[in-house]
């Protein structure tokens, strides 16, 4: 039996498809026993779907750094 903290970490890994098979099995077993974690897992999965649906874009740190440098030059 794994702890809720551990279950949460595995759940997060599973969101990025990085949980191993045994980890997923342990998580399933835990969720079967623990109502709180199954609710949290549901919400976590929902967040993943939202992030995919929103089609997010972002600038990389290097691009941001470049922007900052250009702005600094103006000052």
């Amino acid at each position: 039996m794994i702890s809720c903290d551990k279950a949460a970490i595995i759940c997060n890994k599973a969101q990025y498809r990085e949980a191993t098979f045994t980890e997923k099995l342990k998580l399933r077993f835990h969720l079967f026993m623990c109502k709180t974690c199954s609710k949290a897992t549901k919400e976590n999965t929902q967040l993943t779907t939202l992030c995919q649906k929103a089609d997010l874009h972002s600038l990389t740190e290097q691009e941001k750094l470049k922007m900052k440098q250009i702005l600094d030059k103006m000052n």
């Binding site: 874009h57 972002s58 600038l59 691009e63 941001k64 900052k68 702005l71």
Partner: peptide
């Protein structure tokens, strides 16, 4: 840059699908 660059970038890319242009506009 830290607070709004990504927000503005998302706004721009919704209107201009070219990422390079969107970045320049930001």
């Amino acid at each position: 840059v830290d607070l709004y660059a990504d927000y503005l970038f998302n706004y721009a890319i919704g209107r201009i699908s070219d990422a390079e242009v969107a970045k320049d506009l930001v």
